[in-house]
Design a protein around this nucleic acid. Structure first.
Lengths: 239, 239
DNA sequence: AACCGTCTGTACGCTATGGCACAGTGTATT
DNA sequence: AATACACTGTGCCATAGCGTACAGACGGTT
C-alpha cells in the first residue's frame, strides 16, 4: 500500500497530515469487506483495525439473552477499533459489515504504536472517538424519546450520509434488529415515510427521495451528532 | 491540596501511581458539590474537571425541544470531563449534581498537560473513558429492550454502587426525567419493586433492601458495564 | 394550629408497539 | 415452467407506557 496520490475516500485518512499517514499507510492491507463479515467480536481481543473506504459497519451491543441493538455505525467517515484508540485491547461490542464495501486492514499494535508516536494522530483519532460517543448518546436520545417513524428517518439519514448512491439495500428484518423493534413495525413505518414522498421502498431496497423532508421527519433526532463530527474532524459528514 | 496520606475515596485517584497523582493533586481544589450545581454545560468550553469523592452527577443529552435523558452517571468511581480527556474542549452534553457530595475541582488545562506528560495517566483516564462508553452503550440497550421496571432496577443499582448508604434521596419526578419516562410510571414501578420486597420507598427516599433481587429484576441490563469498569480500572465498581 | 406548596397515589382513555400468524409477492433455482 | 425460499404486507389482540387530571399526604412556614 503506498501513498502516492491522495486518493483515499476515508475521511480520517484524508484528515491526516502526510507524516501521520506515513506511519500507518505502509502497514495497511487492502481488503474487500463483504456482508456479513465480523470485524470485532464482543469481549475478544481486537486483532485488526478496519478503515472503510466504502460500505457500512454496525456496532451492536448484545443483550444477554439474544436481542441485539445498534449503538453506532461506521462508514468511510471513520474506522473500527475505538477500544484500541483508547489504549485497550478489546471491545464490549460486536462490529460487523452491514453494507458490503472495501477498505484497509491494519494490525492493532501498529495503530497503538503510531498513536504513541504521533501526537497529531492521537489527537485526530481521539477526536473521532468523541464523535462516536456523540453518535451513541444521540442514539440514547432517539431510542428514549422518538417514535419508530422518527428513528427510522434518522437511521436512513445516517446510512445515506455514508453510502454512495441514493439507494440503501437491506431487508426490513435487518432494520428491525438494528432499531430494536418488530419487523412488521418497520414495514409500516416505511410505508408512512413512503406515503409522505420521502423515500421509495421496494423489496430489499430503499431509495431516498427527499433528504430534507426526512430530516424534518426525524424531529431533531438527526443532526446534533453530525454537527459534532464536523466540528471535531473538520470535514462534513455526508453530503 | 496535598498528598500526604492516601485517603482519597475517588477510585481514579486511588488507581494512580504517586507520580501521576503528583501531577494533578497540587492543583486540585476541594469543593462541596451541592444539587443542582452544573458541572458542564452542553456545547460550552469545559473550564474545570470535577473529581468526585462523594455524591453523584448525571450526564444528560438534551433533546432539541426540551426533554432530556440521562446518558451516564459519575460518582466516586470517576470524574467529569471526558471530552477533555479526549483532547477536546467542549462536551455535547450537560452534567450536573444529582446527589450532593464533595470532591475536587481541577482546571482543564492542567489535566490536559498532565495527560500529555504522563503516559500512565493517559492510559488510566482513557481506560475510564472506555468504561464510560460501555456505560452509555449499556444504556442504549436498556432503553431499547428493557421494561420500565427493569430499567428502574438497573438505575437504582447504579446509583447504589456510587452512594454511601442504602438510602437514595430524590423525587419520582426527577427519576422520571432521568429515565425519560412519565412521573406516574415511576411511582407505579417503584411500588412493584416494593411489593417484591426489593426496596422501601417513602417520600423522597428509596431504601435498597435486596440488592441481589434487584439485579435479578434488571434481567441482564445491569452488570456488563460494571464488569467492564472492573476489567479496565482494576477495582470493582461499588460493593 | 392553620396554611400552602411539593410530592405521591391513582385513575381513565389513548396510542404505539409487541407477539403472533398467515397470505401474497418477488427472486432464484432447477 | 414449476418450485421453493425469502421477503413483505396485513390483521388481530395484548400490553406498556403516555397525557392528563385530581385527590390525598407530607412537611415546612407563619
Amino acid at each position: 500500500m503506498d501513498d502516492d496520490q491522495l486518493n483515499f475516500r476515508n475521511e480520517l485518512l484524508r484528515a491526516m497530515g502526510p507524516q501521520e499517514r506515513d506511519l500507518i499507510v505502509p502497514h495497511m492491507e487492502p481488503i474487500t469487506l463483504d456482508v456479513p463479515l465480523i470485524l470485532e467480536l464482543e469481549n475478544r481481543p481486537v486483532g485488526d483495525i478496519y478503515i472503510l473506504e466504502a460500505g457500512l459497519a454496525s456496532i451492536v451491543a448484545r443483550f444477554p439473552g439474544g436481542r441485539d441493538i445498534e449503538v453506532g455505525i461506521v462508514g468511510r467517515e471513520g474506522m473500527t477499533g475505538a477500544a484500541v484508540m483508547l489504549g485497550g485491547d478489546q471491545s464490549a461490542n460486536r462490529t460487523f459489515m452491514q453494507i458490503s464495501g472495501y477498505g484497509f486492514k491494519l494490525p492493532a499494535p501498529i495503530l497503538s504504536a503510531a498513536m504513541e508516536e504521533s501526537r497529531a494522530l492521537r489527537s485526530l483519532l481521539l477526536a473521532y472517538v468523541q464523535a462516536l460517543l456523540a453518535q451513541t448518546t444521540s442514539t440514547v436520545l432517539a431510542n428514549g424519546h422518538a417514535k419508530l417513524e422518527e428513528r427510522l428517518a434518522r437511521w436512513l439519514l445516517m446510512v445515506h450520509d455514508r453510502a454512495d448512491g441514493m439507494t440503501i439495500s437491506l431487508t426490513h428484518e435487518f432494520l428491525a434488529v438494528m432499531l430494536g423493534v418488530r419487523r412488521a413495525g418497520v414495514t409500516v413505518a416505511l410505508h408512512l415515510l413512503e406515503g409522505k414522498g420521502l423515500i421509495r421502498s421496494t423489496r430489499r431496497q430503499i431509495v431516498i427521495l427527499n433528504r430534507r423532508g426526512l430530516i424534518e421527519e426525524a424531529h431533531g433526532s438527526y443532526g446534533a451528532a453530525e454537527e459534532e463530527y464536523r466540528r471535531l474532524i473538520g470535514s462534513p459528514l455526508g453530503r
